[in-house]
């Protein structure tokens, strides 16, 4: 989550002081990602240093307002028209664990998958309940919860797919784990390299 880009987007909507920015951020994202005020000010300092944000003198209530410079407006506008960085995906702990399990003949991979699956499903149940208890009144939270639910669903599907491949014998547990090909993920590109 790019706090920097989010603050720029909010400031494009009008000048605000620190606490207002934090409140606007949390309101827009359903309060799912709490933001501490220190983080807001460090980010604003950095944006100011980069020439994207400028600050006003303190007002009567001694609040310092922040607003976008021209460069800041441009940066905020560009954000909406560029995709979110796909970059290197964060390490997927479940994929890592199951890949390790498959490479070790003494580990019951089907069981490892089952345990993971049950945990993801429980999480989905919790999210689904909370999501539908709130109805559509809180649209920011509903949107963010839906995103989490769909991602969790994808994980369950991947687990099911892997379990089925294992059951069919398409994956051989404990088979020589030294792959013939190594893959690397860098800068959003997938690179494959053969190992003779």
């Amino acid at each position: 989550m790019s706090v920097k880009q989010a603050l720029l987007a909010l400031l494009a909507d009008g000048d605000r002081y620190g606490y207002q920015l934090r409140a606007a951020f949390e309101e827009a994202t359903g309060g799912v990602w709490p933001l501490n005020i220190g983080q807001v000010y460090t980010t604003l300092d950095r944006l100011e240093r980069d020439g994207l944000v400028s600050r006003s003198e303190a007002d009567d209530a001694r609040q310092v307002h922040y607003g976008l410079t021209d460069a800041g407006h441009q940066e905020a506008a560009t954000w909406w028209t560029t995709p979110v960085e796909l970059g290197s995906p964060s390490r997927d702990d479940a994929a890592l664990k199951i890949a390790l399990a498959v490479s070790m003949p003494e580990v019951d991979t089907a069981r490892v998958i089952q345990v993971q699956r049950a945990a993801v499903l429980s999480r989905m149940q919790d999210l689904t309940r909370a999501r539908h208890a709130s109805g559509d009144r809180d649209s920011a939270w509903a949107l963010v919860a839906d995103a989490m639910i769909f991602r969790a669903e994808a994980e369950v599907r991947w687990l099911d797919h892997t379990a089925a491949r294992l059951a069919n014998g398409d994956i051989e547990p404990g088979a020589d784990a030294r792959a013939a090909t190594t893959f690397s993920l860098a800068d959003g590109h997938v690179a494959a390299e053969s190992r003779k």
Binding site: Q114, R117, A118, A119, V120, L121, S122, M124, Q125, D126, L127, T128, R129, H132, I149, F150, A152, E153, V156, R157
Partner: peptide, 29 residues
């Protein structure tokens, strides 16, 4: 087959080869 729909349930049971494998249940509120 849809985990998103199963997630509406209080309990989820998983059948494999005619036996119940696992259960997930919703947490307390």
């Amino acid at each position: 087959h849809d985990a998103r729909h199963a997630a509406w349930a209080d309990r989820i049971v998983h059948l494999a080869d005619g036996t119940i494998l696992e259960e997930a249940r919703a947490a307390r509120p």
